[in-house]
């Protein structure tokens, strides 16, 4: 059954459900522990939500090729698989939210950040998304919204696993942090998204952050104006959106859902095409169309299998 993915700022019900679902997944422990996942410190149960954090870090820490510079192309970023891998991850979150919300019609919402990016820097900070009845605002830790930390309340939202300055997973116990608009003034805007939609092909040699093509533009490594698109959103939000453990902030998924929407819009214009194909050299293993994607909480899939998602979900608008 196909579900509708909606703009979180235009549907208060889906906003409420998303926040409720995230908090449920933060408090669901299915058995895995920090020890199982190779996180230093005393063994602690890992919630379903935090499994997404660990999954993201592990994928980022998996160089492709295996002998490559780990800060280069990895199993989820800096190469062609960036968009398929995050689509796979988003879908797994969506399925888990449907489960804990007991609502098979629930579709993951997106944040149309380019619409906010049309306003002034102050307007961007004042977006309804960051209001107390949105997902809360800026702070270290944040003090408003549904993800506020209360050290005396075990069920309150808390960050339990993050990454240190070397990118290693570590255990913590603290509130969520955001530094909205501090490291960079502005979000991407509609001029940026329009330009990116026009870029072809999907990706190109050398299949890195130096590539031409749509993927590298959408990821945000190209542009004269600093970090672009997806990267710029991470930098603009700051705080827990900065390190490899960025899924700690629920806005991570709202950002990536919008990136996925932009990819879907691109495919509507340019076709459901993906490169490199399976004839590409083994040095691109993990990024070829039939390669298995890095997985943790479910069976894996391939880039080819995620190109057409019409049977699973559709966006309420592809006006990006």
């Amino acid at each position: 059954m196909s579900v509708s993915r909606r703009n979180i700022l235009k549907d208060a019900t889906v906003l409420q459900k998303y926040c409720d679902g995230v908090n449920k997944l933060k408090n669901e422990f299915t058995g895995p522990t920090t020890q199982d996942l190779g996180v230093d410190g005393p063994p602690q149960p890992v919630s379903t939500y935090e499994l997404f954090v660990v999954w993201h870090v592990n994928a980022m820490m998996t160089p492709t090729p295996a002998q490559g510079n780990p800060a280069g192309r990895n199993a989820a970023h800096r190469g062609p698989v960036f968009l398929p891998w995050h689509r796979f991850m988003l879908r797994q979150l969506e399925l888990n939210l449907q489960r804990v919300l007991d609502d098979r019609d629930f579709g993951l919402p997106y944040w149309d950040w380019a619409a906010d990016g049309e306003g002034s820097p102050q307007d961007q900070l004042n977006s309804a998304l960051w209001a107390p009845n949105g997902i809360g605002g800026s702070g270290a830790p944040i003090t408003t919204g549904p993800f506020v930390f209360d050290p005396n309340e075990n069920s309150s939202f808390r960050v339990r696993i993050d990454t240190d300055s070397n990118g290693n997973l570590e255990q913590v116990n603290r509130g969520l942090e955001r530094t909205l608009g501090q490291d960079i003034d502005t979000l991407p805007n509609k001029t940026d998204t329009t330009k990116v939609l026009q870029s072809t092909p999907y990706d190109d040699a050398p299949w890195t952050v130096s590539s031409s093509g749509f993927r590298n533009q959408a990821e945000g490594w190209v542009g004269a104006d600093g970090p672009g698109m997806h990267n710029r959103v991470h930098v603009w939000v700051g705080g827990d959106m900065s390190p490899a453990s960025s899924p700690n902030d629920p806005v991570f998924f709202l950002n990536h859902c919008n990136v996925d929407r932009i990819w879907e819009a691109w495919m509507q214009q340019h076709g459901r095409v993906y490169v490199p194909d399976q004839k590409a050299p083994r040095s691109l293993k993990g990024h070829r169309i039939d390669d298995q994607l890095s997985s943790l909480i479910s069976p894996s899939t391939t880039p080819a299998a995620v190109l057409d998602v019409f049977a699973q979900y559709e966006y309420d608008s592809l006006d990006v």
Binding site: M60, H77, N166, W221, N231, V235, A244
Partner: peptide, 8 residues
């Protein structure tokens, strides 16, 4: 840098 993966 790996530890700040969206920055340049």
């Amino acid at each position: 840098y790996h530890g700040l993966p969206n920055y340049s």
